[in-house]
Amino acid sequence: MIEYYVVAASTYAKDIDFLFDLIFWLVGLWFMATSGLFFWLIIRFRKREGVPAQYISGEKKDEKRWIHLPHYLVLVCDVFIIYFAVVVWYDVKQDLPPADQTVRVIGQQWAWTFEHPGPDGKLDTADDIVKVNELHIQKDTLYHYKLEARDVLHNFSVPVFRLKQDAIPGRVITGWFEATMAGEWDIQCAEICGIGHGLMGARIHIETADQHAAWMAAESPLSLAAYAPAQK
């Protein structure tokens, strides 16, 4: 349902959407049922001439079941929600599949810095590509991200991935994602981080293998260094 409004562009986006849908329909069902019952009771037992109001203590067995039965049914719904939530939580947050590539994501007031591996595929080498507010990744490639914060709490949020992860100063948090479609979408900070929080946006560029290789060739510092003498 959510994908009608925000595309699902990661391998786990649909699992998270399923959880949202499950919670929406179960909670929605109970909301409709309780609202219906509430209004039915209001109309059925409305004020009438000659009928005195009664005080109900709720201690009789047939009165208690109005509480007990819905309570047990809600608990059954909770079990469903918890089961699927734990499965999704494990897959997205606790399991760390082997990475094809790793990027470093640094949040600071009020910008995102992305350190991409260059053509050698490794971080912290001379060909790394550092970009502010631009994350370039390759479709169908599993990425680990190393998330850091330089000043205060931030939150790395990529809505099309259904990904949100706090960035905490002093910690390096590792997570993963794998994009399933090419395109360009928003990245945002989802943790109040100061006066510029609302403007701390960036863009994610999901590219095909050819597009990504071309981007790396154009942006790698080593490529630029090789290109520079020719300009003289």
């Binding site: 640094i106 600071q108 007031q109 009020w110 910008a111 810095t113 550092v130 502010v132 507010n133 330089r150 006066i195 510029g196 403007l199 701390m200 946006g201």
Partner: peptide, 18 residues
């Protein structure tokens, strides 16, 4: 204001977007 090492500049860039 878009150099990763320019802390103050990185703050001013989004402010200017307002």
């Amino acid at each position: 204001g878009k150099n990763p090492d320019d802390v103050a500049g990185l703050r001013m860039h989004p402010m200017s977007l307002s």
